[in-house]
């Protein structure tokens, strides 16, 4: 606590982000102890602060699931849409209002499961939306079922014998579909998460940041890492800095910025060329 002998005014918070960007009256949030979504959301609003954006210039869109609830806590223009449909909604918003900063925060199931087709086409269009994909590799809200990104062999409530299917790589998918900014980070290094999200937010085009995140309650508990601390350590030990999601190193997961193309035109702006013609 602040030392009461000191004049209180002499100690100032090192960030004022919470006051401006958080709907504090709705805290504590609904996420489980140690869940990574809160950490990622902290990094998102830190970047909003750093960029000096105004609350009513940001449209923050989510779908359904644990990550879907993030929109309720951000003091911006927020939409909690239906499952998998945050990106087409964000597309409509951005097309109507290119001056708005449109950010979509998706889960792995929301983003590349039920919403997979929208994800591909948002990338293909290069619509100016920042897609932050919180990949906790499981369906958390519904109780820990297998997701498209659950690793092969991992357990969930619907893969009691281990996941038979291979998992999906969000970054490879984004690159294949034409996203112009693609990066992968993990919650064990939150400052790096913030840096990369900051770059993605400033990108003029469809930007994907996949954030590997911990779900200690389900993924961790079913797979020998019930403590969030264990999960963060696993991220540190099983990732490496890379230039491409295709890079290989002892079976570890590549991390880093894989694409940053500033030349492809953004859709909401290029469409407006038709207005002039």
């Amino acid at each position: 606590m602040v030392n009461e002998n000191d004049a209180e005014a002499s100690f100032v918070p090192m960030s004022s982000a919470p006051d401006k960007w958080l709907r504090k009256e709705h805290l504590p949030h609904i996420w489980c102890p140690g869940c990574g979504i809160g950490t990622i959301l902290r990094q998102v609003i830190e970047q909003f602060t750093k960029l000096g954006w105004k609350n009513d210039d940001v449209v923050f869109v989510t779908g359904i699931g644990c990550t879907g609830r993030a929109s309720g806590y951000v003091n911006a223009q927020t939409l909690h849409t239906i499952h998998g449909r945050a990106l087409p909604t964000a597309t409509g918003i951005k097309m109507a209002r290119p001056d708005m900063h449109v950010v979509a925060m998706l889960g792995d199931g929301d983003g590349v499961g039920i919403g997979g087709n929208h994800f591909i086409h948002a990338a293909k269009r290069n619509i100016g939306v920042t897609a932050i994909v919180v990949n906790n590799r499981i369906y958390g809200m519904t109780g820990g079922q297998v997701s498209p990104t659950t690793p092969q062999g991992s357990k969930s409530t619907t893969t009691p014998y281990g996941n038979v299917e291979p998992s999906m790589d969000v970054c490879k998918l984004a690159l294949g579909a034409g996203a112009t900014f693609v990066a992968r980070v993990h919650t064990a290094n939150p400052v790096y998460v913030g840096q990369i999200i900051g770059r993605a937010l400033q990108h003029d085009g469809f930007a994907v940041v996949e954030v590997l995140s911990q779900c200690p309650t389900y993924f961790g508990r079913f797979n020998g890492m019930p403590d969030p601390v264990q999960m963060l350590q696993w991220f540190k030990e099983n990732t490496f800095m890379a230039k491409s999601p295709e890079d290989e190193k002892e079976g570890k997961i590549p991390i880093g910025v894989f694409k940053d193309d500033k030349t492809t035109p953004e859709l909401s702006k290029s469409y407006r060329n038709l207005w002039e013609a």
């Binding site: 909604t89 964000a90 109507a96 929208h118």
Partner: peptide, 22 residues
């Protein structure tokens, strides 16, 4: 703005987004 979306779900959600945006 005219957009041809990837399917009808995407279409109606884009319509909802644009309408929300004014």
């Amino acid at each position: 703005i005219y957009l041809q979306m990837e399917d009808e779900i995407g279409s109606i959600m884009a319509v909802i987004g644009a309408s929300y945006a004014g």
